[in-house]
Amino acid sequence: MNRTLLVAAPLAMTAYGLTRIIGRLDGHYGPGADWQLAHLFGLAGMLLFIPIVLGLRPLTRTAGTPVTAITLAGLATTIVQFAADMILAVAATDRDHLKTLQHQFTDQPGIQLAFYDIGPMLFFLGIVTLAALTAAAGHLPWWSPALMLIAVLLPAADLNLMPLTGLLMLAALVPLTRARPTGGQRPGPSPHPSHAATRTPG
């Protein structure tokens, strides 16, 4: 698995969270450069997680196939959510106008449910399950799924915790960056691995 992706995807989520917090300090977050930059980081993180999810699939044996599909579906809806918020922000003249445009978008039949309420949850639940299956197959330590679970629960409690979510995801996945291939077998973790909501954007 590409080690750069394993680091870049979680850090992009941390960058999204930090940029969002900084952008909200002046009380005028969105629309504007801070909104677009934060959502660009978030969008990049979701896109970078696609090859990570696909890379985890071979490490989970056959049980990972349906989970991978569910996780990718969740990623797709989250990508649409980030992209929509960026596009709407371009069209908006101020914060109130942006909220109006967002409501017009989410009021369309099925949009709120698919892209905000249910869809993104599939990614978060899926990535935890994939981490658990990968650990069960011996490619991640037992604590990786635990960290991943904590990571995905934090934004549901408070979106300002998103920077920590990215760091915990990084810690959960970092043992895979230390994997070493042995013969023709798939890479596994090194003998001593390092410790490493409804509306997501906004």
Rank of each mutant, 00 (worst) to 15 (best):
T77V: 01
L154A: 13
T78L: 10
P181V: 03
G42F: 08
L147P: 12
L43H: 05
G30S: 02
F124Y: 15
T71R: 06
R95I: 01
V80Y: 03
H97P: 12
I50Y: 07
L164K: 03
L167E: 02
T134E: 09
L140K: 07
H39T: 03
G64M: 01
L88H: 09
G32R: 02
L88R: 08
K99E: 12
F82Q: 07
I150P: 13
A89R: 08
V67H: 10
I127L: 11
T71C: 14
L72G: 01
A146N: 02
A83M: 10
P155N: 11
L125V: 12
L37C: 06
G27E: 05
P163W: 02
P193E: 00
G126A: 00
G202L: 03
F115P: 13
T14S: 14
V152W: 15
N2T: 11
L149W: 10
I50P: 09
M46W: 03
A63Q: 13
G45C: 02
T129L: 13
D96S: 14
A171M: 11
P51I: 00
P58W: 04
Q112M: 15
F115Q: 08
L147H: 09
T68W: 04
I21D: 11
V174K: 08
L59D: 02
Y116A: 13
G126P: 11
P31H: 00
M46A: 13
N160K: 12
R199I: 04
A33F: 14
D158Q: 06
A89L: 13
A91M: 14
A84W: 07
P175M: 03
H28W: 11
P155G: 05
A84P: 11
P163Q: 00
G17A: 07
H195E: 00
A69E: 14
V128K: 05
V128Q: 04
A44K: 04
T19H: 05
L72I: 08
I111P: 13
K99V: 06
W142F: 09
L101F: 04
A135M: 12
L147Q: 03
D96N: 14
L48S: 08
L159Y: 09
W142E: 07
T198D: 11
I21F: 02
G30I: 00
G74D: 05
L48D: 04
L5R: 08
